[in-house]
């Protein structure tokens, strides 16, 4: 079965291997050059203080985005081009009647095909993810945003889970639709939908978020900035609430990047009227006075040290989905042809 699976899908496998080799060559060379260029530059600094570093990083934004796109697309393409034809092509051309009448039971045939293709998919995506994770490490150290929804998908372990899921999804869709092209389209659509849905609705709840009153602009790992005042009715008044934007470096702020009301140490929302800085009429108060005030923001977030827990949990979630789809496929294979 190993040979048969290889022989049947070797064109796809070889294409993927060639593309992977190309990407690897580029990323390795450019990644090394990038490391050489930033060698010796201060790396852990605020945006304003690392001008040289920022310049190098900015010069490579396009390559970085392209590398990310590769990891983003790889599982989807694998699902469409490897998973969907896995069974659909056989049903479409009738070759299932030939292959199911060799001495290998249908269940074993499916298991071998699915396992081998999944292994190839995981390997391909894994290598790609490893490369891109390595390539993007300087960017991540600079941006502190690898826990953000889209970027989280492009690093570490999760692409492996996506790839396994995409293969199983494609195979299952192919079995029930019996048409390769339709199966490819549906696989892409469903996979995309799941990829959008999980970060929005599932990932935030993988672990109870931390709810905290965070001091603005204090402490080494939390950044935030005072953003200004609410202007209800378009006018600044005594009821205008102070608002601030909070950023948790390498963490994931769930209560949103939209400005949050600023509070005092007791959690009370501060307004212009309750601010300990005098303001003159319609003008905002003196900035240096605000900066001296102790401002806090109530925030729900996933802290940076949960990154790998989340990677593992989400990979597990997708692996479980893949297993469920494989079971469904195996059941369908036995049943729908009866």
């Amino acid at each position: 079965m190993t040979w048969l699976t290889w022989r049947q899908h070797r064109a796809q496998f070889l294409t993927a291997a060639a593309l992977l080799a190309l990407a690897a060559a580029y990323l390795l060379v450019d990644g090394l050059r990038l490391r050489h260029e930033i060698h010796g530059l201060p790396t852990d600094c605020g945006i304003d203080r690392c001008f040289d570093l920022e310049q190098v990083i900015t010069g490579r934004r396009n390559a970085y985005l392209a590398a990310g796109a590769l990891v983003l697309l790889a599982p989807a393409l694998i699902g469409a081009f490897w998973g969907a034809p896995l069974i659909a092509r056989e049903l479409e051309t009738g070759t299932h009647r030939t292959v199911w009448n060799q001495s290998v039971p249908r269940g074993r045939w499916l298991a071998a095909k699915l396992l081998l293709t999944t292994a190839a998919a995981v390997l391909t995506t894994g290598l790609l993810s490893l490369l891109v994770t390595w390539y993007a490490a300087p960017f991540d150290r600079f941006d502190h945003d690898r826990f953000q929804p889209l970027l989280f998908d492009l690093r570490g372990l999760v692409p492996l889970g996506y790839a396994a899921f995409a293969v199983a999804l494609g195979a299952c869709t192919g079995l029930f639709l019996r048409r390769t092209l339709a199966a490819m389209a549906v696989t892409l659509a469903v996979f995309t939908a799941v990829q959008v849905l999980v970060p929005l609705a599932v990932r935030p709840h993988l672990q109870q978020p931390v709810h905290e009153l965070v001091a603005l602009g204090k402490g080494p790992t939390r950044h935030g900035s005072f953003a200004g005042f609410d202007t209800p009715g378009g006018r600044l008044g005594p009821d205008s609430r102070m608002i601030a934007v909070l950023d948790v470096p390498d963490g994931w702020v769930l209560s949103g990047h939209t400005p949050q009301p600023a509070r005092d140490a007791t959690g009370r929302v501060l307004t212009l009227a309750s601010l300990p800085c005098p303001s003159s009429g319609p003008l905002p108060p003196d900035g240096s006075c605000v900066a001296r005030a102790d401002l806090y923001v109530a925030v729900d977030y996933q802290p940076a040290d949960r990154y790998w827990t989340f990677q593992l949990a989400e990979t597990g979630l997708y692996a479980a989905l893949a297993a469920a789809l494989a079971a469904l496929t195996s059941w369908g294979l036995r049943r729908r042809l009866g």
């Binding site: 040979w3 048969l4 022989r7 051309t93 009738g94 070759t95 292959v99 009448n101 001495s103 290998v104």
Partner: peptide
Amino acid sequence: VGFVAQDTPLYPTFTVSDHLRMGARLN
């Protein structure tokens, strides 16, 4: 049991000897 299905479905990209090799590996 040997079965030759209607329209004798074979793998179009496989050569004749690929098919024999498949038979050898699966039976």
